[in-house]
Each structure stands twice: as structure tokens, then as C-alpha cells.
Design a protein around this nucleic acid. Structure first.
Length: 210
DNA sequence: AACAGAGACAACCGCCACTTC
DNA sequence: TGAAGTGGCGGTTGTCTCTGT
């Protein structure tokens, strides 16, 4: 049994250019009717749901394709902090972008970025669990410790700048060794998402457009 | 050159809300 | 009033491409 066909004989999986052309032609000629009835009328061996999804997420003429701009990224972050995973609601504020596209962009880029910066991607608040940041903190503490012990008398200013930027991008503003322990004091002044939304790009982390 | 793993994104699935009868 | 049909939404999976070994 070909896995690209359902038990009822309808095709599933990636669309071919020929199928796309049939769908576009049908909609341009007849407009929208019942999605359920459309496949038969258009000569497509697909279910109506599959046709609707293909049109709304890919074939619609007003869809904007390509990378998300910095402005779009900021808009998504802002709206997500207010609306949560309401992708269709977020999409209404981004002309030409589909909810599916925004959802994918969030899951593959923005969520990871927030986590890397020490923010909880669901609440947009700084993460308070030390263990989630521990590897990052260990590395920072080790680097800072070595610098403070003057192992680099001709300290590279660029390196120092990077260290400070890294430290300030975490939730902890004072990372140091205390005997064998790593101590990280929480940065209590950092308020929620303002770091992200005040128009400044995150320090020390590359943006998606770079 | 071949393979494995990771990343990106298109597509599917299941559920829910709304409409119609 | 409730059952059936339909469309829309969000979560998840599948597939393709890229990159490193």
C-alpha cells in the first residue's frame, strides 16, 4: 500500500506543481465554494481539508514569503506575550503571513532565542530556575574567575566586552566562585519582556536576519 | 562520496465552535 | 433542541535540505 495514499484512495503528502496549478485554476475560475466539494470539481484526488490548507498556507496570492523582518519578529514577540499561542490572532497583525508560518517561526527560532536569553517562552518572564541556566553560568563563572585572577594581564577589551554582554543577557548579574560553589545573584531589576520590546536588539545573540 | 544528525517548514490530525436543518 | 456538516485552530509529525564527519 502506497503510504502517500489514504485508505479511501485520497492522496496525502507533499503537493505537486500540477496539483497546485489545478487548485489555483479552479479558485481563479470558480471562486470559493464548499471546500469539501472542491477537490472533485477541480479534479484533485485530495480531501477538502488538504486543499484549504494548501491554499491558505501556500498558494494564496497575498502571501509574503521569505525571512521575517526585525519588525515582524518584534511584533510576534510582543503579541505572543499578550495573546499566547493564538497564532491566527497574531497573524491578523502581520499582513501576508500565515498562522502556520508564524507558528513554525516561533517554534524553530523565537522560542529557542528566548530560552537562550534566559526567558521563559510561555510567560516571557526571566526564568528563575537556576538549573536551567547552570551550564551557561558555569562557563561564565569559569571565564570570569580566570580573568579576575589576572591570568590575562593584557586583557583583550573585546573579550571583556563579550563577557559583560553575556553576563547581562542572563538573569543573573553577579556570577562568582565561592569556594567550590558557583554563586549567581538574581538580577532583580530586570522586568519581564521590556528588554526585548523597547526596540533594542538583544545583546550578544545573533538575530535571525544576521 | 556516503552517511547521520539537525534544522526548517509543509502538511496532517484531532478537536472545537459555529451553522444549518 | 440536538445531530450532522463544515471550517478553523493549535499541536504534532513527516519530509526535505543542509551541514558536519
Amino acid at each position: 500500500m502506497d503510504p502517500s495514499f489514504e485508505e479511501n484512495g485520497l492522496k496525502k503528502g507533499p503537493w505537486t506543481p500540477e496539483e497546485d496549478e489545478k487548485l489555483i485554476q479552479h479558485i481563479q475560475t470558480h471562486g470559493f465554494g464548499s471546500w469539501r466539494a472542491l477537490p472533485k470539481l477541480a479534479g484533485l484526488n485530495r480531501c477538502g481539508k488538504s486543499c484549504r490548507l494548501r491554499w491558505t498556507n501556500y498558494l494564496r496570492p497575498d502571501i509574503k514569503r521569505g525571512k521575517f523582518s526585525q519588525e515582524e519578529e518584534q511584533t510576534i514577540l510582543h503579541l505572543h506575550s499578550i495573546l499566547g499561542n493564538k497564532w491566527s490572532a497574531i497573524a491578523t497583525h502581520l499582513p501576508g503571513r500565515t498562522d502556520n508560518e508564524i507558528k513554525n517561526f516561533w517554534n524553530t527560532h523565537l522560542k529557542k532565542k528566548l530560552i537562550q536569553m534566559g526567558f521563559d517562552p510561555m510567560t516571557h518572564q526571566p526564568r528563575t530556575d537556576l538549573f536551567s541556566s547552570l551550564p551557561h553560568l558555569m562557563a561564565l563563572a569559569s571565564l570570569k574567575d580566570q580573568l579576575l585572577r589576572h591570568q590575562y594581564p593584557l586583557m583583550d577589551l573585546q573579550l571583556l566586552h563579550t563577557l559583560l554582554a553575556l553576563q547581562s543577557s542572563t538573569n543573573y548579574n553577579n556570577i562568582h566562585h565561592n569556594g567550590n560553589d558557583v554563586v549567581a545573584d538574581h538580577h532583580v531589576e530586570m522586568e519581564g519582556p521590556t528588554l526585548l520590546y523597547n526596540g533594542q536588539s538583544p545583546r550578544s545573540l545573533p538575530t535571525s536576519s544576521s
